[in-house]
């Protein structure tokens, strides 16, 4: 077994154990709902971690893709009489197509130009869902019908905990395999130097586009699950702040670390729930955390801890 395979199995195993243990420790419906939210955010953060960590590209408008998945899940049943699950899959597909279409011109850009272009894209999605009141319900949001699978009403936080947990496990498995594939190696190469990668015969544009599409699909999937869990969607899901939160999850957990994305998602989802009485300070704390992590702990929590652990073992 190669070390890569071993760490892959270790991560998947840890995650699986975690999924089983959480309901034993926190059996209340409310806690399970928060945990389901963590898994959902982790799915979106995973995709973004691949884009940011592996390929070194940034997206400051990723909530736009989250919103496409969420709104598709709400709008399909409302306007076309479609099944919510089918609508969600259509939304995930649509997000992938959009990413594919805009990906090429956008990913040609670098640095702040790329940041600003993705940011603009996210905000345009937000403006559309706010403004198209007749279709999206505008700022008031829109109800999502309950999911019914073969006559079985999918209801209750326990069920949603299980569903989102399994999807996260699958998403993690795919992400780990992508990281460990020839595509993953190509992406790491172009992260270090695009010119060197191109010289080595790597189709830089195609690989960047691929990971951008994967990140968009992950986000849309998370958005769809979010809509089904909450059974309600508002334009807030597409907001600029939501995009920044996603980026922060990746950054705090440790850019380029898949485990880090999950840790980051857990932190940023659970903390505001614990601190509802602390509501007013939420933005100040979020902003400060971003600055501190970027300035002093740029590698993030998981790689940071891993480094400490490795040093400790050597000593």
């Amino acid at each position: 077994m190669t070390p890569a395979t071993r760490s892959k199995i270790a991560l998947l195993g840890t995650l699986a154990v975690l999924l089983l243990v959480v309901p034993l420790l926190f059996p209340s419906a409310f806690h399970l709902r928060v945990a389901a939210l963590v898994w959902i955010n982790a799915i979106a953060a995973l995709g973004l971690a691949l884009l940011m960590g592996l390929a070194g590209q940034v997206s400051l408008g990723h909530a736009g893709f989250l919103a496409i998945g969420a709104y598709a899940t709400a709008l399909g049943p409302r306007h076309l009489g479609l099944d919510p699950l089918l609508s969600m899959l259509a939304g995930v597909f649509a997000a992938g197509i959009l990413a594919f279409l805009v990906g090429r011109p956008i990913l040609r850009l670098k640095g702040h130009y790329l940041a600003v272009a993705t940011l603009g894209l996210g905000i345009l999605v937000h403006l559309v869902v706010v403004s198209e009141v007749a279709i999206t319900g505008g700022p008031d949001g829109i109800q999502v019908p309950r999911l019914v699978l073969f006559g079985w009403r999918v209801v209750g936080p326990e069920i949603w905990y299980a569903i989102t947990g399994v999807v996260l496990l699958l998403a993690t498995w795919i992400a780990l395999n992508l990281e460990d594939s020839s595509t993953g190696r190509a992406l790491r190469a172009l992260h270090d130097s695009e010119i060197a990668a191109a010289v080595a015969g790597i189709d830089v544009a195609r690989h960047k586009l691929l990971v951008f599409v994967v990140a968009a699909v992950y986000a849309a999937l998370a958005g769809g699950l979010l809509a089904l869990l909450n059974r309600f969607v508002t334009p807030d899901v597409a907001s600029f702040l939501r995009s920044i939160e996603l980026v922060t999850m990746v950054v705090i957990g440790g850019m380029g670390s898949i485990a880090g994305a999950i840790v980051g998602a857990a932190l940023l989802t659970v903390l505001p729930q614990l601190l509802t009485f602390f509501h007013d300070y939420e933005h100040a704390v979020l902003g400060l955390a971003i600055v501190l992590f970027m300035v002093f702990l740029r590698q993030g929590i998981v790689p940071g801890l891993a480094g400490l652990f490795a040093r400790g073992r050597r000593a």
């Binding site: 940034v58 400051l60 702040h112 940041a115 702040l241 920044i244 980026v247 922060t248 950054v251 933005h283 100040a284 979020l286 902003g287 400060l288 955390a289 971003i290 600055v291 970027m294 300035v295």
Partner: peptide, 11 residues
Amino acid sequence: IIVTIGASIFI
């Protein structure tokens, strides 16, 4: 960029 965005959210 992320630092300045973080700073703006903080302010």
